[in-house]
Amino acid sequence: MADYKGVMVYGESTDGKLAAITTELLGCGRKLADDLGQELYAVILGSDINGLAQEAIAFGADKVFTVDDPLLKDYQSDSYTPVMEKVVKEVMPEIILLGQTSLGRDLAPRLAFRLDTAVSMDCIDLSIDPESKLMLQTRSVYGGNAQATFTSESSPQIATVRAKTMSSMERDDSRKGEIITIEAGLDPSAIRTKVLEKVIEEVEGIKIEDAEVVVAGGRGIGSEEGFKQLGELAKILNGAVGASRPPCDNGWISDSSQVGLTGKIVSPNVYIAVAVSGASQHMSGCSGSKNIIAINRDPDANIFKASHYGVVGDWKKILPAFTSKVKELLDK
C-alpha cells in the first residue's frame, strides 16, 4: 500500500465544461487528500479536451493528467479501461473516485477488476478512518432501506459517488496546478464495440436535475393524461415533472423523467410527490430535497414518513384545486 499515493478524481464533461458531478468529486477528493496529507489529482480522457484541465485545477486539483486521443471521442469500456489502467499504473493513486453516472457505472467495476482490486458503487459518504487511514465507503443498499460502510482491502481503493451528495469548492482561477499529458497507447483492434448513435430525448422545459421545483407522480396517477395535469402545476411553479418507476415502465412519461436509484438524483427546493407510495428505491433519488410535499390517499403510505407537508386524499380531487390556488397566490 505504501507505493500508492494521492487521490484521483475521474473527470467528466458536459458541453465542453466539467460536469457538476466532477466538481463535486473534486470537493470531496480535496478533503480526503488533505486528511491523508496527499495530493489531489484529476484525470481527463477524451478527444479535444482543451480547457478542462485548467478548470479542474480551479476546482481543487493539484495535478491533472490528460489523455487526448481521437479513439477516446466516445466512451467505450474497451477503450477507456486500458487507458485508465495505464494511467493508474503510472500515477499509482491510493484512491480513485468516479461519478455514479452512465460512464462511471460501466467503467468503475471493469477498471477495478482489471486492477485486481474492489470498488464501492454509489457512495453517499466517504471519509478517512483516522486509525487505519483507509477510506470508509458508505453506500445505500437494499434499495435505500439500509446503508452499509465498507473498506477495501486492496489498492487502489475505488468508489463511485452519487450525484449531489458532495459539495464542490468555490471556483478559484488563481489556483496553480500542473498539467501532465499521457499517451493513450491504444490498439484500435482491441475495441470490440462501436457507438453508432447517441440519442438525446429532449424533455420540454427545464431539466429535472436543475429544477428548483419537481412535481412527481407515481403509479396512482394511472395515465399519460394524469401526467399532463402534473405538468400544468410544474409549469406554474417553473419546475419539472418527475416520476417513480412504474409510470415510466408503463409509458405514461419518458424514462428520462424517472427519479430514484436507477434514475435521476434530484435535490430541488420543493418536491411535490403525487400518488407516490414512497418506496425506498424512489426516495433514494429525492430524499435530498429541501421540502417534500405528499399527496396520497393512503395515510400509512411511506411517503408521509419522508415528507414535511402532506394531504391525505384522492389526488384527482386535490390536485386541480391545489393547482388553481397556487396559480392565484403566485399571480398576486
Binding site: D74, T101, S102, T193, E197, K198, V199, E201, S256, K264
Partner: peptide, 11 residues
C-alpha cells in the same frame, strides 16, 4: 440507457 436518452452500440 444514458442519463438523457440512449446510445446505440454495436458489439
Amino acid at each position: 440507457v444514458t442519463a438523457d436518452g440512449y446510445e446505440v452500440i454495436e458489439v
